[in-house]
Simulated scan of single mutants.
Amino acid sequence: MRTAFAQWKALGIGLEFQEVTQLSEAEVRIGYSTADGESASAVGREILDVALNEPTTVYGWSLTTQYGSGTALHEIGHVLGMEHEHQNPFAGIKWHEQAVYDALAAPPNNWDHDTTYHNIIERLSPQQVQGSKWDPDSIMEYEFEPGLIDVPDKYDINGLFPPGTISAADRQWALQWYPALKSRMTTLEPFEAVSFNLAAGQQIDFSITPAASRKYTIETKGASDTLLVLFEQIDGEPRFVAGDDDSGEDRNASITHKLFKGRTYIVRLRLYYPGQSGTTSLMYS
């Protein structure tokens, strides 16, 4: 697991992974259940909704083999927000569906019809994902034996056996979603709106040091679609406090939360769509 996290970090993404000893301190909680023989993970921000006494990510077989190391990378990909590549709405895959259901109903998977549909056959809608054309080398792609994929023809004959490593496209998307963090950030002052222009997919951070302990409202202005997240700086590390996503809704992102005098907070804004003006404003009061 440590090697897999290190490989994702080595891409240059703007995330820090820290191993902790207290379960309550972990946002990502790794579990093992070789008796169940299944590996799975919550996807992206879904991990924040998993009960603290439950794992967010479970492995069902040894990670010390080459196949197991690919599984470790794959499930961390889910943690970062990546879905299965064969369910990519831009993939154009056509299945021999009954053959897929029959193959995955057999050992070692022993999947029922609904599980196979959810993990393999079901295609994500374009509104659910940010992505590009199908990448058969993606770490998020499964292996498929010959006779399960109808189109493209070459996979029908030869099967699909991805290398089990982070592909160039995986790296490109990870860096887009998690750009390298800047060491210095602008301080956001109360009742002073700050305006800026970002391209879709870009983000910006501001620091807040409240002068009094009370409830504050942090909100965006403008026609842009954004994701707004509040962190508290604890022992030099940003800890998630609250978030709001206004994407696709006719409103602005807003967080109301009690902030404490003497503490330092970080507000992160990620732009999905800049609106007609291209300008977004942020203020707290």
Results as ranks from 00 to 15, higher is better:
residue 8 W to R: 04
residue 9 K to F: 10
residue 10 A to C: 02
residue 10 A to L: 00
residue 10 A to P: 03
residue 11 L to G: 11
residue 11 L to Y: 03
residue 11 L to Q: 05
residue 13 I to M: 03
residue 13 I to K: 01
residue 13 I to N: 04
residue 13 I to E: 01
residue 14 G to L: 07
residue 15 L to H: 08
residue 15 L to I: 06
residue 15 L to Y: 08
residue 15 L to W: 13
residue 15 L to C: 02
residue 16 E to H: 06
residue 16 E to C: 06
residue 17 F to A: 12
residue 18 Q to V: 10
residue 18 Q to D: 00
residue 19 E to S: 06
residue 19 E to W: 10
residue 19 E to H: 04
residue 19 E to T: 01
residue 19 E to C: 03
residue 20 V to K: 10
residue 20 V to N: 00
residue 20 V to H: 01
residue 21 T to W: 04
residue 22 Q to D: 10
residue 22 Q to V: 02
residue 22 Q to F: 05
residue 22 Q to P: 00
residue 22 Q to K: 12
residue 22 Q to C: 03
residue 23 L to S: 05
residue 23 L to F: 06
residue 23 L to N: 04
residue 23 L to E: 11
residue 24 S to Q: 13
residue 24 S to M: 06
residue 24 S to A: 15
residue 24 S to Y: 05
residue 25 E to W: 04
residue 26 A to I: 01
residue 26 A to V: 01
residue 26 A to G: 13
residue 27 E to F: 02
residue 27 E to K: 04
residue 27 E to A: 13
residue 28 V to D: 03
residue 28 V to G: 14
residue 28 V to C: 15
residue 29 R to V: 01
residue 29 R to C: 08
residue 29 R to H: 10
residue 29 R to K: 11
residue 30 I to E: 05
residue 30 I to S: 07
residue 30 I to D: 05
residue 31 G to W: 00
residue 31 G to R: 02
residue 31 G to S: 13
residue 31 G to F: 11
residue 33 S to W: 08
residue 33 S to E: 08
residue 33 S to R: 10
residue 34 T to M: 07
residue 34 T to C: 07
residue 35 A to T: 00
residue 36 D to P: 04
residue 36 D to A: 14
residue 36 D to F: 07
residue 36 D to W: 11
residue 36 D to Y: 06
residue 37 G to R: 13
residue 37 G to A: 10
residue 37 G to W: 15
residue 38 E to D: 08
residue 38 E to W: 14
residue 38 E to Q: 12
residue 38 E to V: 06
residue 38 E to R: 14
residue 39 S to G: 09
residue 39 S to A: 14
residue 39 S to H: 09
residue 40 A to S: 11
residue 40 A to K: 10
residue 40 A to G: 06
residue 41 S to W: 03
residue 41 S to D: 09
residue 41 S to P: 05
residue 41 S to L: 09
residue 42 A to Y: 07
residue 42 A to W: 01
residue 42 A to D: 03
residue 42 A to C: 05
residue 43 V to R: 13
residue 43 V to L: 10
residue 43 V to C: 14
residue 44 G to P: 06
residue 44 G to H: 08
residue 44 G to I: 00
residue 44 G to E: 06
residue 44 G to K: 07
residue 46 E to R: 08
residue 46 E to L: 12
residue 46 E to K: 10
residue 46 E to D: 15
residue 46 E to F: 07
residue 47 I to C: 11
residue 47 I to T: 05
residue 47 I to H: 12
residue 49 D to M: 07
residue 49 D to P: 02
residue 50 V to K: 14
residue 51 A to L: 12
residue 51 A to Y: 07
residue 51 A to I: 04
residue 51 A to S: 15
residue 52 L to F: 04
residue 52 L to E: 13
residue 52 L to N: 11
residue 53 N to P: 02
residue 53 N to K: 00
residue 53 N to M: 05
residue 53 N to L: 11
residue 53 N to C: 08
residue 54 E to G: 03
residue 54 E to A: 14
residue 54 E to T: 13
residue 55 P to Y: 15
residue 55 P to F: 15
residue 55 P to M: 15
residue 55 P to I: 09
residue 55 P to D: 14
residue 56 T to Y: 07
residue 56 T to V: 01
residue 56 T to Q: 08
residue 57 T to N: 09
residue 57 T to H: 03
residue 57 T to P: 09
residue 57 T to R: 01
residue 57 T to C: 14
residue 57 T to F: 12
residue 58 V to K: 12
